[in-house]
Design a protein around this nucleic acid. Structure first.
Lengths: 326, 326
DNA sequence: GAGGCGTGAGAGAGCGCTCTCTGCGACAGG
DNA sequence: CCTGTCGCAGAGAGCGCTCTCTCACGCCTC
């Protein structure tokens, strides 16, 4: 198992290392006969270019990072897999590696180091909160970065998101179309843009809705629905800020003898796997996650290729998936 | 944004590059005063070692791959996240990168190239099937590799798995303990060791159980349960080969007017997120995925550190999580 | 005081690759 | 016939780092 170097390929082919390199990278002009000689030498020796050596001179790592928070509610997030798969689809054919970085508190800065020491060419950042210093550092250092989701505060950074407010509106319109008269919403956390925007869009359409604040979890859906039924027993339509909330809500509604969608229509958000395992299956707002992920990858590659690329934001339209629950 | 090299650190500290390198890597003996001078120089210049240059000479990439099949049923697999997070936990504190490789058909060999050209130090392989040439190639080349799950055919390769048969037995014992008289199982695919072993362990405990073959999906759970109810309407206990099967089974049981666990007790396998969003919540067999993932990482690191490490297999014990469904 | 030895720093040789620069031969234009 | 140009291959200078090898210096022993 000896290592084959370009030097050796050149020797076998009877050319110089420079010419062998030209053939490997397909640039420059090389005589057809020599090109073939080199190609034969490559396959006969089983040559593979040493990435470290190449990277040392090209100053490209041919690797990008995907930075995720290692939070429990993130684990098993069905979106995660779609993001990974979407980014992979763009990046892999180019021979670029995707480095997964699940960061606990404190280890997040690692991404910045990896970028600065040339180990990574750029990063996709998921779910940054206002306290996260990483985006700021990256911007300051002029390093390629794309955010998944609109930043919490306005900042000059490229991001890709879905129009959360439009999604909320979609849900509201659905409940109205179903003829619901007493409509409520259980929201996501109001300190997150995602949580806020969904309600905002929803309230634009159903201004007199009852609002109960929660977070995106199933537990929160359970607690908030108990509260909702106490405050407003005649509710006949619920917009849940997430599918998980919706599953919790439906469990509580059943426990209280309400049928879904008979007595109460329920619309979720995310079109996660929970939407399908739920009884009844969830009507929900879908985000085109895979498309968004591909767009993130493309935006990042653009920045890497040309660091002077202006900051952009791409916003995708959500869609309503009608199933049994509402 | 100029790059700081070790050369520059050495110049600022007034020492040679060699000494600066010793301080950075913490090896060799360096005078205390010089050590401090170098450390000051490092922080004042903001020095970060160039990984490519280091990797070129150390012949270590400080990166490992996690190879997953890019199949739809794999997307959103709740285990995936636990595997990633477990591996990350071991590997990250050592500064080792985790490269996610979702491979479509044909692109799987990429992992072998990445390993051979020094881009990756080792790989964790998930869900290889008998037709997969990669494990064989890796073994032949003597490259560090760990399999997640027992290989389909016996081969000299290190793997980490859970005792699937013991898990099946756990489920069988539970149904017996509940007093079920007419017990059935809906299996996973019988061409996968995972699918086979679970039934085998189950049948050791409940030899007269009715067996319906399916795969691990919810759809399969739905179809198989319809079949089961037709063949055996008095069934009062079901062991589902996966949680997804179980959710499908429960949906069908409800549709047919059976209560769970009143009329029919249901036990799943995996303790996935579906087990919690299900109504009623699923009694299920848990695999200690995060622990297993950590073990995989450790095994892999051992092989990387010492390629002569003998092939090992580590088998974890499953446990029963009792909830509402059975 | 000479020789042996241990400690710690510097010199410098690569690691394998890319890429510029040089050089050489062929051909066109003056 | 000489010069300019162009096409294409080779020489070689790094990229930034690690690590061996050499060497200087101070201490101990005889």
């Amino acid at each position: 198992m000896k290592r084959v170097t370009l030097e050796e390929v050149a020797r076998v082919a009877g050319v110089s290392r420079a010419t062998a390199s030209r053939v490997v990278n397909g640039l420059g002009t090389v005589d057809e006969a020599l090109r073939h000689a080199v190609q034969r030498a490559i396959s006969s020796t089983g040559y593979l270019p040493n990435i470290a050596a190449r990277s040392l001179v090209t100053r490209r790592a041919d690797a990008i990072g995907l930075v995720l928070p290692d939070e429990h509610r993130m684990l098993g997030d069905p979106h995660l897999a779609s993001v990974v798969s979407g980014v992979t689809r763009v990046v892999r054919p180019l021979g670029i590696h995707l480095v997964l970085m699940m960061t606990g508190p404190g280890t997040r800065e690692q991404a910045v180091s990896d970028l600065r020491c040339g180990r990574l060419d750029g990063v996709v950042l998921v779910h940054t909160d206002p306290a996260d210093p990483v985006p700021g550092q990256l911007i300051a250092a002029g390093l390629p970065v794309v955010l998944a989701g609109r930043p919490w505060q306005p900042m000059p950074i490229t991001y890709v998101d879905v129009d959360q407010a439009a999604g909320g509106a979609l849900a509201g319109e659905r409940l109205l179309a179903l003829g619901c008269r007493r409509i409520a919403t259980i929201t996501g956390p109001q300190d997150m843009p995602t949580g806020r925007d969904r309600v905002r869009g929803f309230l634009d359409v159903v201004p007199d809705a009852v609002v109960v604040h929660g977070d995106f979890t199933r537990e929160s859906g359970i607690a908030s629905t108990e509260e909702l039924l106490a405050r407003c027993p005649d509710v006949d339509g619920v917009f849940a800020g997430s599918d998980l909330i919706a599953t919790g809500a439906i469990a509580v509604l059943h426990r209280h003898g309400r049928t879904v969608p008979g007595d109460v229509a329920v619309v979720g958000f995310d079109d996660s796997s929970a939407a399908l395992t739920c009884e009844p299956e969830l009507t929900t707002v879908r985000q085109p996650i895979a498309d968004m992920a591909q767009e993130m990858a493309r935006q990042l590659l653009r920045q890497i290729a040309n660091p002077a690329t202006p900051v952009t934001s791409v916003v995708f339209a959500p869609s309503l998936v009608v199933r049994a629950s509402g």
